[in-house]
Design a protein around this nucleic acid. Structure first.
Lengths: 142, 142
DNA sequence: TATTGTTATACTCTATAACTATA
DNA sequence: TATAGTTATAGAGTATAACAATA
């Protein structure tokens, strides 16, 4: 039986395995950055998700974080008690509450985003051409 | 002043920003897979780190997980009480304890690895050529 | 009736500090 | 003295189930 050596059957397993490795390596990055601003990893993640002037409903936060809705209550409580975010009423549906970032929150958010965006060693060591190619592929995958 | 439009100054920020987006998206993947085998995310991660016949010292686990050594005690306690791993003495230095995976642990580990390795939608949708290129670039970055 | 967010509960993760046993 | 791992403690994250307000 012939084996096609040049192109083994693959639905993306190998590409994903390599990305997964990177993901696992980077798993301690968010906690590390969060610690520099005295936030927990999830709190940091929520702040990052809240673009200024773009309030997000609690339910959607739970979805994005992949956690139970009841947790969001506590996470938002703690961020709100530090004045970084604010709960607001959403127009139509009076059951829905949205979370908006405050001025203080936005300032801290900029610090967080800047630190998270600092590319790790592995990326910096790539050739400019590989980086461009990587950008093209990942942009297309959005 | 001339601006080089084709190649803006960049130490990998954009490539990293795109990867970071993907990684943040994938952040709920480990918890999801962990839940299917009734483990916590860290417990799942530890099991994944423990290749059969390759015991790992507690201290190195703490390092890899990016957490305090005292946490590893509890995490290892819970995995050990379920018979998935075993603490053993390390040869030379009698202060060091290594963690080895059991037969039961190895069986569960295979399930975990198989589920984690299932590539997500974004990867599957890439063209075979893009996937090959991605593999090449990421492999080189190891 | 179904849905959004909250509360109560129980367990896990986390860092800090103090401890033990080795080195 | 320094290091590897443990214990105690306190705060945060997590899921489940029961609940209030609204749809």
């Amino acid at each position: 039986m012939m084996r096609r050596v040049e192109e083994p059957p693959d639905r993306g397993e190998r590409a994903w395995a390599l990305l997964l490795e990177l993901l696992m390596d980077m798993r301690s990055r968010l906690p590390a950055v969060a610690a520099t601003v005295e936030l927990s990893p999830v709190q940091c993640q929520v702040l990052r998700l809240l673009e200024p002037s773009r309030p997000v409903p609690m339910g959607r936060l739970a979805e994005t974080l992949g956690c139970n809705a009841s947790n969001v209550t506590g996470i938002v409580d703690r961020l709100e008690s530090r004045g970084l975010i604010r709960r607001e009423q959403s127009g139509r549906d009076r059951r829905v509450r949205v979370v908006a970032i405050t001025a203080d929150g936005a300032r801290l958010r900029r610090v967080i985003v800047r630190r998270l965006n600092e590319p790790p060693e592995k990326i910096r060591q790539m050739s400019p051409e590989d980086r461009r190619t990587l950008c093209r592929i990942l942009s297309a995958a959005e």
